[in-house]
Amino acid sequence: MSKAVSVLNGARFSGLAEVADAGLVGMITLRGDLESSAVAAAVQSTTGCAIPAVRKTVEASGNSVSWMSPDELLIVTAYDQVADLCAKLQEALTQEHALVVNVSDARSCFTLSGNGAREVLGKVAPVDFAADQFQPGDFRRSRLAQVAGAFWLDQGGAFHIVCFRSVGEYVFNLLKTAADPDAGVGVYS
């Protein structure tokens, strides 16, 4: 089997904030009725996370579960665990009208950390990143300049950004430009 690599193979940039290709990340799309107790039980038993509230991310046991839409979750796990977790979820949801798909290789993941992270992301997405508006555990699907993307803020204050792999390089260059050391605006600081 060919060797899997992430879109920019661990590229990094340091400016107003640290931008980094998060490397290989396991991602699973789960579509189904999020109100259903069977779905909640399956997610809880396989990932250790509860079903997140609207536009929230729940992190537990090294996994995270994010609210994508009223019938969709994004489950993030370690890349080498993803096939196993997918199988377990499918097994647990056999009686449910639900869909579980491994999308790890279809998406890219970036992390954005440091003092200027809110400002850098605020330049490319139409979202209010004031500290009292976007807090750790908050999740949002929006656009990153011209492409669709999703991001959440973890408890450590770093943003995790997910986009389609086909536009991974675009998103990295975009964040790099926004994080240029000479491009500081001073908002949110």
């Binding site: 609207v54 139409p126 699907r141 929006s142 656009r143």
Partner: peptide
């Protein structure tokens, strides 16, 4: 009304 986000025109 589904995700409660205040979305501006470019997101819609």
């Amino acid at each position: 009304p589904y995700c409660g986000a205040t979305a501006e025109e470019t997101e819609l």
